[in-house]
Design a protein around this nucleic acid. Structure first.
Lengths: 106, 106
DNA sequence: ACATTATATCGTTGTTTTCCGATATGTCAA
DNA sequence: TTGACATATCGGAAAACAACGATATAATGT
């Protein structure tokens, strides 16, 4: 984790910011959840599948998928594949570190 | 100060990030300073003129000027005009607040 | 094996950003 | 008040991004 252009580019988009917020509290924020947690990891750590975020955002599936990939590349999200679903969740450690880095190093 | 697209867009550029770093410690980071502090405010709070940042960055004067304006608009920099110079300095309060907001609200 | 579902990737088009040179504005000094 | 300097603004060309539909890949169920 470092404060580079790539990281801030990932955050420089309304929808991607919304995705991060939705994933903060999916129980309340994801209005029509469809993917049921199917593993202990998902039950423990949470995670939302792509199609739920597609519904929520109103954007095309391909757009959301690439946005999610950008956020993973920036280390802000963690992706876990289970069967045909990929569950995305926040990388809380990295996000806290980001806040600290901005205070110290920006 | 809020975590919106505009703020992160301002940070999503290598040169603008460098400018923020240079302004963190201008004495050491600005290699060829030309603008002498001419007021108590600049002496007290610091601040670097546009032409020094133009030299440092190697970009055109117009580019640097608009980059600085973007950072001011995002509330990350403070601009103070003295005579024919405009001195830019970091908005440390806002930057600390940004770090805190990311930890709490991102 | 085949159809279905979920996600990822590719190619494209319109929009935004980057960065420039030219020019305008503002300030000081002679 | 004219010239020189510092900065800001404008208009444009090239690159990057946003967002889409079409298609590829991957896993599941029959």
């Amino acid at each position: 984790m470092e404060l580079n252009e790539k990281l801030f580019k990932a955050l420089a988009n309304k929808t991607r910011l919304e995705i991060l917020r939705w994933l903060k509290d999916p129980e309340n924020e994801i209005h029509v959840p469809t993917c049921v947690p199917i593993s202990e990891e998902i039950k423990d750590y949470g995670g939302v599948c792509v199609s739920d975020l597609v519904n929520q955002s109103g954007l095309a599936q391909s757009t959301v998928s690439s946005y999610l990939n950008l956020l993973v590349e920036a280390d802000l999200l963690i992706a876990v594949r289970h069967g045909k679903w990929t569950f995305y969740r926040r990388n809380e450690v990295a996000i806290q570190k980001l806040g600290a880095l901005i205070k110290e190093e920006l």
